[in-house]
Amino acid sequence: MLRGSKVGLRARHEEDIPVLRTELFDDVVTSARSEGAPWRPIPPGSKDRRLVVDDTVPTHVPFSVVELDGGALVGTATLWGIDTHHRSAHIGLGMLPSCRGKGYGTDVVAVLCHYGFVVRGLHRLQIETLADNAGMLRSAERNGFVREGVLRSAVWVMGEFVDQVVLGLLDRDWKPDGNHPRPERPGTGR
């Protein structure tokens, strides 16, 4: 298991699947906002890639996220789109609704950075998130990610187009202790 200060990232267990299906992927709005695709129901026993791990896909490494204190499941984390030639990958995560706002997301991003940069030897990590996802933006920036751009009206979510923010972090800019200066936002002076 990979450990942060609050959470651990471990392999997906069979008992995680019903919880993730019910609390993350059966929620139409949450699923539509996180998947970048229309919501669709996942039937019990499905081999859906969001739930069941396929070890034969080397470009996609999914984790279950658990609290270090007690081991309760709190969400999912993924290093995806791993490109061994360019030494880059994307980060994705989803926290159970009851576990949001507790700092777990920031810790998950930190652990995924450790996994990507130290364990996998990557050079660049990238996050794409909706412009109104304040929690993800905060978690990324606290870990040193820099806003690289906004894709205007790029994502169709529940009847409207929404802006998507692209954030990046290079291995040379990553500080494993998590003590990153807060990036200045253009035009705000802070």
Rank of each mutant, 00 (worst) to 15 (best):
V166P: 06
G81R: 12
D27Y: 02
G92K: 08
L151R: 15
L24S: 01
G178S: 07
D54P: 03
N133M: 08
E14S: 11
A32Y: 12
G105V: 02
D83Q: 08
D26A: 05
D171W: 00
G135T: 14
T76E: 01
D107C: 06
D54C: 02
L170Q: 01
G178H: 08
I42V: 07
G36Y: 15
R87V: 00
V118L: 04
P176L: 08
V119L: 07
R33F: 14
V109C: 04
E23W: 03
V162K: 08
D173V: 03
F25C: 00
N133T: 14
A140V: 13
D54G: 05
E35S: 10
K47M: 05
F25M: 01
V65M: 07
Q164K: 15
L68V: 13
D177L: 04
R10H: 09
N143R: 05
C113R: 02
T76H: 01
I127G: 06
H90P: 07
V61K: 06
E184Q: 09
R12F: 09
R100D: 04
V109L: 06
H123F: 12
N133F: 13
L112R: 04
G144N: 11
D173R: 02
R40N: 07
S31F: 11
G149C: 08
L137F: 12
L73I: 09
T56V: 05
V65F: 13
R21S: 00
A131E: 13
M95A: 07
G81Q: 14
R172Q: 01
V29E: 15
W80R: 11
P38G: 09
P62E: 12
L130F: 13
E148N: 09
R3C: 04
G45R: 08
G101K: 03
M158Q: 12
E15W: 14
P62C: 05
